[in-house]
Design a protein around this nucleic acid. Structure first.
Lengths: 339, 339
DNA sequence: TTGAAAGCGCTAACAA
DNA sequence: TTGTTAGCGCTTTCAA
């Protein structure tokens, strides 16, 4: 069973290859009669143009690489859906590249993407570095970088930055209104740019509110549920104990919540907890989780749209977008004990 | 900045294109002196062969499509990791195709995969049909089908079937030993093959144990947490009430668990709950969830390995593998009330 | 209004 | 031991 090629179609419809090509791509006028013959032959033979051959000529593959840290991280679910939505609507296919927070693995993927001549790369793995970006840029491949900073990044790629300041500020003011005076942060691993940014935002907000409240930084977590368990252990040893905690992400917050409940805490009365991400689970657990949300699906769509724009018009300036975060108040935060 | 081609390398090292090609692919002997020159030129120019051009010649792309229902479904996380592991180790790249349980969308993806000349397709979306499989098979593309049945499937693709019988049997015997006599099933949507299979396994196991125990089928769920909420509502209206429930997946089980707790139930004393999947969360909630587990990472690896084997040796018979499931007893099951 | 032919970057059969 | 050349399936000038 040989593959049907444009030649077969040309032969069957009695025209030249170029005419067939032009019919398919509507790239020059073809007499209606001829066109119909060609279309019929295409149907008869069930012909589908090889995008490989096309790519060789056009130097465009209609593919993009999606570099993410971990498919299992709920943060990415909606982001991926957004990316796919735009990609599918524009005839693009996405290569999935899970770095597993491993830089070497990331670089391996980057090489494979370059070899495959992808039209663009979406950098969404928090484990990344400038070398990856350079490798892509050197090969004239467009890219969009999400939530990552570094020198000269915006010269090489479009960026989407998540503004944690707004959300974290809102969170802290929300806690202050509830009477909390000692607020802890259960942050992420310091090697991750995004974790450092979140910590910075927390510290800035605290500083702005001093001396009314005291900020406490717990040791680095791992952005997973166990990290929350540990954070709770550490937190509960403080004296005086923080009455509220902001977690680097929702999974950490859930870990804290469950560890606290297992330790016999009444929630939220004895400890107010705020997460970050607004994953599906956040609104389904008991108590439902107050959290800092960001428009993940929109971020995915925005990233892929920006990438497509860059691919279509490589000369245009690379955009730097900022996406806001905001607090969603649910049940896991309440008045500080003794208020 | 033009792309470096094999011609540039040939020119710079003063040999022919074919010699360069043979050096790269080690496909015929090249004198060491010549080889070094070529290698040096490759390094100097930072040359990387275009896999597009290669594919056009070899009719192999080194890519495979991964059709899944939903990246957000925890079942897939480890499966995807397994697939990626094997793919990366073998120089394969994976096209991510999220059907969102939508058949049309699935077909759209299939077409795009066929056009891209993927070497193989991994069918892992529970929303699929014979047409997709045929379309792939007709275009001489290899495929592996996970957990889906249909007429003649195994003539067209290798299959991996999950044997729910073993796990569900173990689950029911576990409950019987604990003294449960009325056991409910919170199943998945009947349109999904896998949901029907699970229900069948449940009924078979119950039948084998009658009249000692009574099986109760709740209305169809949606494999998500809300589905569990609904299942609990329905279940709690039964009189006499089932004392144990087996859910079609862990998310449903968690939904039941949380709904029950919100309704003031003591868990697990007043209701024993068994999930299916053994997702990460299962061992982290309180009470930890007794569940039917399957080796998801291994399934992913197995699927991709089988696909590669088929790609490399298309004439070989298509394998039909069966993967066992087994019960993991945790805290969410205990003696029936009154025992 | 259409066709012929060159060429995208590579591989491999055939020559030398 | 290496080079020449004919494709792989398509697009796109240039000619007719």
């Amino acid at each position: 069973m040989k593959r049907v090629t444009i030649k077969d179609v040309a032969l069957r419809s009695g025209v030249s290859k170029s005419t067939v090509s032009h019919v398919i791509n509507q790239t020059r006028f073809v007499e209606d009669h001829t066109k119909q013959k060609v279309l019929q032959a295409i149907r008869d033979l069930n012909y589908r143009p090889s995008s490989i051959a096309r790519s060789l000529v056009s130097q465009r593959t209609g593919t993009a690489g999606l570099l993410i840290s971990d498919v299992g991280n709920p943060f990415y679910h909606d982001v991926i859906l957004g990316v796919e939505e735009v990609a599918l609507a524009n005839g693009y296919s996405i290569f999935l590249c899970n770095t597993g927070y491993d830089l070497d693995r990331g670089m391996k993927y980057i090489h494979s993407l370059v070899d495959r001549l992808v039209d663009g790369v979406l950098f969404m793995s928090s484990a990344m570095n400038l070398d990856m970006l350079k490798e892509v840029h050197t090969n004239s491949i467009q890219s969009v970088v999400l939530d990552w900073g570094g020198t000269n990044v915006s010269e090489m790629a479009a960026t989407i930055t998540i503004d944690f300041n707004t959300g974290i500020c809102e969170a802290i003011h929300h806690l202050i209104e509830l009477g909390h005076e000692r607020i802890a942060l259960a942050g992420g691993p310091g090697i991750l740019w995004t974790a450092r940014i979140r910590e910075r935002a927390f510290l800035d907000a605290i500083t702005a509110c001093q001396p009314a409240i005291e900020g406490i930084i717990l040791s680095e977590g791992n952005l997973r549920i166990e990290g929350g368990y540990q954070a709770f252990e550490e937190l509960s040893r403080f004296a005086p104990r923080p009455t509220a905690v902001i977690a680097a992400n929702d999974l950490t917050a859930l870990g804290i919540m469950w560890a606290a409940r297992n330790a016999g805490y009444q929630l939220p009365e004895e400890l107010s907890i705020i997460g970050l991400d607004d994953i599906d689970l956040a609104s389904r657990v008991t108590p439902t989780l107050t959290t800092i949300a960001m428009p993940r699906y929109e971020i995915g769509k925005l990233a892929m749209s920006n990438l497509l724009a860059l691919i279509r018009e490589p000369s245009q300036p690379k955009t730097d977008r900022i996406v806001a975060t905001h607090l969603i108040v649910r049940e896991s935060t309440t008045a500080a004990p003794g208020r």
